[in-house]
Structures are given as structure tokens and as C-alpha cells.
Amino acid sequence: MRRVVLLGSTGSVGTQAVDVVRRHRDRFRVHGLAAGGSRLSLLAEHVLDLSPDVVAVADRDAEPSFRSAIRAEAERRGLKPADHPHPAVLTGPEGVEELAAGGVDVVLNAIDGALGLASTLAAVRTGNLVALANKESLIVGGDLIRRIAQPGQLIPVDSEHAAIAQCLRSGARGEVHRLVLTATGGPFRGRARTELAAVTPAQALAHPTWSMGPVISINSATLVNKGLEVIEAHLLFDVPFDDIVVMLHPTSEIHSMVEFSDGAVIAQASPPDMRLAIAFGLAFPARLPGVARAFDWTKSYDWRLDPLDDVAFPAVDLARHVGRTGDGAPAVYNAANEICVQRFLAERLPFLDIVDTVARVVGEYQPSTIRDLADLDAVDTWARARATEITDRRTP
């Protein structure tokens, strides 16, 4: 029985992780749950389903409302107070970090934003295995995490990186030639740069495959999201940036590939379902039965792959540059992009200016040694302020 902590249990990845655990109660015992505090009713459902020992809520003032939500959910299920869980409750960001640092077998980190980075650092320092779904942990804090993480301590939960981790089990690390990350290409796949000048927020939000939040939808449209994943792949697998390739694959069935030195290419493929990557992270190195549906091999599949147009979509090459630079540059890329996406969604910045502005901010950044979270905060603050200053001077 593996003892687990689920951070961000009420988000998209977190709710799917809860589903995986529910289906495999013989394999997992949930020690703790954590959430931001905006969906307390759902968190109460998770508590009654999984009976954790501890719950952490990032909102410092949420405990009374959370206790009330548990009582309401228990009453809805016809349970008396003596018959439902009464977990210890931690509040505030430090409470989430305390839960992440508890001694368990695996911590799934599906928290959004900077709070996820602090939790990853806390879990890694304790020696916990970390199933990592929080991008900021590596994009922003990669310099810090790589200093303290032990080999094999971080298990990727992003579908692309989980795919690569599985493919790497087919050969020795010294036999790896390159990694191939797949990307849907977003709503503008196949368009030339000149065709993107007048793109509207509504058009950029209309992803052809996935229904996602506004920021990740825009990041998919600009390919910034894939640039972030290239940086993650380098940090997770220690493969040079020149040996990480991006190929467009609109059906999202080949999740990524590894090419070995003899020319063999190993791919991990499945119908799109994040539960596969989540189960991989929670149960590593084992596989769980019946996690998701398999392919129907009586049908035909089109697994087309096309090269990325780096002129139309320069975000990936820019990500390689900031990844090689290090010393806070990836944090600048991430922070400046978030400001530019906000401006674009508010119709205050043209689509092509998102990545162009990020490149300008990155070009002005003076790399500095990142010693702790305070250094990262300073870099993040500078990048956001500079991106704001530049975009405030522009009109679409």
C-alpha cells in the first residue's frame, strides 16, 4: 500500500488523480489532500471519499467554511458526525508546504503557480518521490530543484514527459540520440506568420482538440506551452537542447518519442487521457490495470507528424535560448509571457507581439545566480514590470 499526498486535488489533474486512487484503493492510502480553497464543496467530497489524515487549504481563512462543507456533504450522504472523517486542517501556503514535506511514498503536485514550486522544494528536501504536474517547479525553479533532487526523484505527470520517461526504459541513457516532443500545433497549425497578424482572442482560444483555460489555450496557440515543455524535458532528462525536437501531431495520440543511437524510435501512444500519465506518476515504476481505454484496433488511425515552422512560431526556439542561458532566464520567459497573454486577451496587444515582447524582455535580462526563492521572486517581479511597461506603450 503506497501512502500518497495529492496537492491541488480540486483542479483538473487533481480530480483525475482522485479518480485513479478511487479505482485502485488496494494500491493507495491517501495521507493528505491540499487545495487552494475556491472549491471547498468538492474538497469535502474528496475527504469523505478518501478519508485523509490531513487537509491543507492555501486560503488562511478557509477552515470554518471547509468544516461546514464537510458537514454538509456528510449530511447529504446521510452520515452522522461519528461516521465521517475529521482530518487535521492546515491553512495558508505554509500549511500546504508542511503537508508536502510529510514523510510519504509519493507526493503528486498538481498545484498551479508559484505555490507549487515551494511545495515541490519542500517535498524534494524531505526525500519524497514527487509526481510532478506543476510547470513552475521546473520552468521557474529548475536551478534550485536540480541542486537538491536525487536521480529519479521527480516523476513527470505531463503527458509528453511521462511518455518520454516510459520510452527511455527501452534503452540505456547513453544510447539516447534525441527526444521528440509532439504538439497539436494549436488552432493555427499550418499558417504562415503573415496570416497570424490579425488573430483575435476568440480565434486563439478555439483550440481544435482540447477545452482548456484561457492562458494555456493562448500558450498552445503561440506554442509557448511547447517551449516550456522543451525546457522541462531538458531539466528532467538531461538531454541537450539541440537534441530535443518538436513535431506537430494534431490527433494527440502519440504523446512523445525517443530516438536511440541505432536509429530506432520508441513511441508511447494511447487515446488522449491524462489519467495514464497520472497513474504512471503515482504507481511508478509499476503500471496499474484498467486506467483508461485502449485503442480499438479494428479502426484506422492517422498518426501524421509534421515539422514545426519556427518562423511562424518562434516560441520554441526562444525557449531553447532561455534554457541554455539559465540563471533565471526561464523565469523571465514565463513571467513576461503571462503579462503578454493578459494584454492580448484584453485586446491590448496583437497576437504576434506576445512572443516578440517576451523575446525583448528576455534580451534585456541580465542573468544572475539564483540562490533561493527570494532571488526568483525578484526576477519574476522585474520581468512582469518590464513586460507591463513595454506593452503599455503599444496599441493593437
Rank of each mutant, 00 (worst) to 15 (best):
S270C: 14
L248C: 09
A331V: 01
L223M: 15
L223A: 06
V18C: 05
R324C: 15
G102V: 12
V245Q: 07
D310P: 13
G37Y: 12
S51K: 12
R394N: 04
A197K: 12
R193W: 05
R39W: 09
G174P: 06
K80C: 03
V230P: 00
D327G: 06
W297C: 13
N225A: 02
G36R: 07
L376P: 04
D83M: 09
A165T: 01
G326D: 10
L305Y: 07
G36N: 13
I139S: 03
H234R: 13
A315C: 09
D53P: 10
P201H: 04
D49T: 14
D306M: 02
V332F: 01
C340Y: 02
A82Q: 12
V311F: 11
R76W: 05
S270N: 13
P240F: 00
L144R: 10
S170M: 11
V96S: 03
F280M: 06
F188K: 00
A336E: 03
V13G: 02
D310E: 15
L33P: 01
P307W: 14
P187S: 06
A206Y: 07
G127P: 14
L236P: 00
A118G: 10
G186D: 09
L205C: 09
A233C: 11
D273P: 05
G213M: 08
E364G: 04
D53K: 14
Q150W: 09
A378N: 08
S211C: 08
